[in-house]
Design a binder for these strands. Structure first.
Length: 901
RNA sequence: AGGCACGUAGCUCAGGGGGAGAGCGCUACCUUGACACGGUAGAGGUCCGGGGUUCAAAUCCCCGCGUGCCUACCA
């Protein structure tokens, strides 16, 4: 395989399939339940089993994979626990839609048969997203894949439910909850999405039972008036000088209802009189309880008006609203209508307007659990990154309300509670009880409701690892190292996992929570199917390759800022992958016969300055990558690698070694010449450097772009096995070489100076010209002398003279680098006017800088109060600029003279 | 109504008290034996506005303006 030539362009598709299959077959993703290695664990945020991979998943899982591959290469025992979520409402909706196509509904099928069909559906389509994650390169331990409805996880759910019930943290009762009239189930507060809605405020007159006049109330929902059982005013409101016991007539219903007094009523809103509908508004419900008001339900579970709605029975709630308005107009009781913007809750699954609905539901008493979860973060047991989310977490936890966990659907974990039909006793137990422990009766019926899907997700960090059994995996991997997730499920999931983890495991579920941003479209809009602006990750992978896609996501993953993604950006990073590919292709061509004869120290004495420089740079990149990944700064790590590979390794190093590699007799270089002793030739030293740099760069890059790095690694001589098993590079003081960096800075600076003149003076790239560098410093002259040929090759010179400052060469253009003046000889091709313009422009730039500097140095306070090193720095800078300006001006004079003559 | 972000080159953004940066785009030149998915060079900025702290502010503080998002039972 090694001797194969690489193609000119990188073709990802075949490569990706091949290597993913290999990794899986070799078991490289597998974690060990028992190991001497240090553990590192992540549980995947389980995607909905009905889900299709979208950008959010792609981003989220790319980051997790980067961390897992990174830690694995560092020698950790890595567990990335995969799985899917049964997504109760969503999945039930999907299967019901399937049934509807056949003209059936679930009630015809019956509960048992319906559940069977859902499982069947899951078997057929549920694996889709898992395969898509594989295309992304996700290195999950697939053998451990879990599903929230698995037997083990279901047992965990029942265990938790029973325990919380016994602890008094689960209760059942009649309350106003959020009801979706389409899904026909209760929803938790979080499952309701509020949206601003342009509605109306209707002012309705409720006439006094006795006498003239009446009270005008304002409402946005006139249809609920049919269930009004009182009108409330603030006792301090002087406008309502009304006796206790006064009653008004409820319009359209001809029902007497009392006027009550309650401080809750805001005197500044509307008319200061509030209609009270205890059955259809949570506040009214509370007020109703306090004042012992009747509760009249007028809207049914399907969103239609019920038998209590009199003539409006059977109408849809929104139709009824219109009808009521009409009827009130007829009666002359509609005082006025104002446009009014208010927020309206919608079902997060189907967008139907949610109805506050009185019903008997199960709740978790969250406060005690939340207090623990708050304390844990305060103690630092769990760290939220970036920190700004910590405040959001506290705010929500501090204001948390009880969690409605019962759902009136069939697909999910059925609540483990039974009612005795003989005595009404409620029994909560792990398994179906044989008889009632109240009366001994045996006619028990199980609670029909199932639990909120998030109830089972909340257990995910330990239920997936074998809890409630005393599993090895649990001992090794709990608490998990980090949770990587989007802020959109901070409350839904993260907060609840914290509460459950602390209560049942007596420890937090994760040490770190890394909250990443959202992926948006190129204009910053949220991607959504209805907007039609989604980019399908699989389409992107097919078009640009997984590595390009992953690198893009990582490169844009700056903390706290959303990612605006467009195909153009991914294409840009495909170019990077291709660049790496071609640099490797070049390197491998030369490395075909290379056999590494020892470690760095074997070669170190014989390395050229460029060799030493690239090692030093590599070391600094490794430092940056390690630090950045430890801090979840994926964009910084990706940026450092991009910069290194493209602009240091490719742009400079490869160009510098080309002559060394192509020259069959490289002895002519005469550089860094102490290396006779070990007999390593400059050519060999360069090969070693090339090999070692590429080798380490690949390893640094692998977590980000696993496929292309594995493919190149496979062709790299002198390495064994998968790059996944290679060690992640460590930093080494052996590589650090400030001297080589200084020298290379000088060489690159001079080279750029020459290139700059060439470019600006339109010297054809193919034309070799002569150059002169005048340096006052003898050491610099010596250094440049040693590397004369390197500069000539990089700057396309046919001659390079290095001399002390002296006579200025005629017919040349100039540039200044540090103390050194560069002349590019342009015999016959110099355009004196152009050169004058160029110099003037350059001088103008310097003048601008000098202006700022002299202002600073003219400031007494600055001289007196700024730290001396800062002042010295500014002085030195001034000197440098003045010097540079002088040099340019001198040359300008010469050019002017020549141009004139 | 409260809270949190963000506003830096044409676009997307990094940076975060003492020299304004990157990628893409743009302009000019170049089929050099890894790569035109490339190379070299270049143009381009009141760092949203206004105050304050400081010797020094794009950077810290305050006030605006603008843009996103989240939370909330005022009908």
């Amino acid at each position: 395989m090694n001797s194969e030539k690489l193609d000119k362009g990188y073709e990802p598709n075949e490569v990706e399939k091949r290597w993913y299959g290999y990794w899986e077959a070799e078991g490289l993703f597998e974690a060990a339940d028992v190991s001497t290695k240090q553990p590192f664990s992540i549980v995947i945020p389980p995607p909905n089993v009905t889900g299709v991979l979208h950008m959010g998943h792609a981003h989220n899982n790319t980051l997790q994979d980067i961390l897992c591959r990174y830690r694995r290469m560092q020698g950790y025992n890595v567990l990335w626990m995969p799985g899917t979520d049964h997504a109760g409402i969503a999945t039930q909706n999907v299967v019901e839609k399937e049934l509807a196509k056949e003209g059936k509904n679930r009630h015809e099928l019956g509960r048992k048969e319906f559940i069977k069909q859902v499982w069947q559906w899951r078997k057929e389509y549920g694996g889709l997203i898992i395969n898509q994650l594989k295309r992304l390169g996700a290195s999950c331990d697939w053998g451990r894949e879990r599903f929230t409805m698995d037997e083990g996880l279901s047992r965990a759910v029942r265990t938790v439910f029973v325990k919380l019930y016994e602890d008094g943290l689960i209760y059942r009762g009649n309350y106003i909850i959020n009801w979706c009239p389409r899904c026909l189930t209760a929803l938790s507060d979080l499952e309701v999405e509020h949206e601003d809605h342009n509605g109306h405020l209707y002012y309705i007159k409720y006439p006094f039972e006795k006498g003239k006049g009446g009270v005008v109330v304002a409402t946005t929902r006139p249809e609920t008036m049919l269930g009004d059982t009182a009108v409330a005013v603030n006792p301090d409101d002087e406008r309502y000088d009304i006796e206790e016991g006064t009653t008004v007539m409820l319009p359209l219903m001809n029902r007497k209802i009392p006027i009550i007094f309650d401080k809750y009523v805001d005197t500044r809103f509307g008319t200061g009189a509030l209609k009270i509908t205890p059955a259809h508004d949570p506040n009214d419900f509370e007020i109703g309880k306090e004042h012992n008001l009747d509760v009249v339900k007028v809207i049914g579970s399907d969103g239609r008006m019920n038998e209590n709605a009199g003539p409006f029975q059977g109408q849809d709630r929104f139709v009824c609203r219109e009808k009521i308005i009409e009827a009130l107009k007829v009666e002359g009781l509609l005082e006025r209508v104002e446009p009014y913007q208010h927020s309206v809750g919608h079902c997060y699954r189907c967008r139907t307007t949610v109805e506050p609905y009185l019903s008997k539901q199960w709740f978790v008493k969250v406060k005690p659990l939340a207090d623990e979860a708050i304390a844990a973060v305060k103690r630092g047991d769990t760290r939220i990154v970036p920190d700004m989310w910590t405040k959001t977490y506290f705010d929500w936890m501090n204001n948390i309300r009880d969690w409605c966990i019962s759902r009136q659907i069939w697909w999910g974990h059925r609540i483990p509670a039974w009612a005795c039909e003989d005595c009404g006793e409620l029994i909560v137990a792990m398994d179906s009880p044989a008889q009632c422990h109240g009366c001994g009766g045996s006619t028990l019926s199980q609670e029909p409701d199932v639990l909120d899907t998030w109830f089972s997700s909340a257990l995910w960090p330990f239920s997936t690892m074998g809890w409630p059994d005393d599993a090895d995996a649990l001992k090794t991997f709990y608490p998990t190292s980090v949770l990587v997730t989007g802020f959109d499920i901070l409350f839904f999931w993260v907060a609840r996992m914290m509460m459950m983890g602390l209560h049942f495991m007596k420890d937090v579920p994760f040490r770190d929570v890394y909250i990443h941003a959202l992926v948006r479209d190129a204009d910053g809009k949220k991607m959504s199917k209805s907007k039609g602006n989604v980019i399908d990750p699989i389409y992107v992978i097919d078009k640009f390759g997984t590595d390009a896609f992953r690198f893009t996501l990582a490169a844009f993953a700056a903390q706290g800022r959303d990612i605006k993604l467009s195909e153009d950006r991914i294409e840009g990073y495909r170019h990077f992958i291709n660049k790496l590919w071609n640099a490797s292709r070049f390197s491998l061509m030369h490395l075909e016969d290379f056999r590494c004869a020892g470690s760095f120290s074997h070669y170190s004495k014989d390395l050229s300055v460029a060799d030493r420089w690239i090692f030093s740079r590599l070391n600094s990149v490794a430092e940056n990558v390690l630090r950045a990944l430890d801090e979840y700064k994926f964009n910084e790590a990706a940026g450092a690698l991009y910069q290194f590979v493209w602009h240091e390794f490719c742009d400079w190093y490869l160009e510098i070694v080309k002559p060394v590699l192509y020259d069959e007799k490289p002895s002519g270089r005469g550089e860094s010449g102490s290396g006779q002793a070990s007999g390593v030739s400059p050519h060999e030293a360069a090969l070693f450097t090339l090999w070692s740099t590429l080798n380490q760069a690949l390893r640094l890059l692998h977590p980000f772009i696993p496929f292309v790095t594995e493919e190149i690694w496979d062709k790299l001589p002198g390495v064994e096995g998968s790059i996944m098993k290679a060690q992640f590079p460590v930093t080494s003081s052996d590589y650090r070489d400030p001297e080589a960096e200084d020298t290379m800075d000088l060489i690159m600076g001079i080279t750029s100076g020459i290139r700059n003149v060439r470019g600006e003076m339109n010297v054809p790239p193919a034309l070799f010209v002569g150059g002169v560098v005048q340096c006052p410093d003898e050491g610099v002259r010596e250094t440049l002398g040693e590397h004369r040929e390197m500069i000539m090759s990089l700057a396309k010179l046919d001659d390079l003279e290095i001399a002390p400052p002296g006579k200025r060469p005629a017919s040349s253009a100039t540039s200044v680098y540090g103390d050194n003046t560069i002349f590019v000889s342009l015999k016959d091709i110099i355009d004196f006017t152009a050169e004058q313009e160029r110099l003037n422009k350059e001088i103008a730039k310097i003048d601008k800088e000098l202006k700022g500097i002299s202002k600073k140095l003219g400031n007494e306070a600055f001289l007196a109060k700024a730290p001396p090193e800062v002042v010295d720095g500014v002085r030195a800078k001034e000197e440098r600029f003045v010097e540079k300006k002088n040099k340019l001006e001198k040359h300008l004079a010469v050019v002017k003279g020549l141009g004139a003559g």
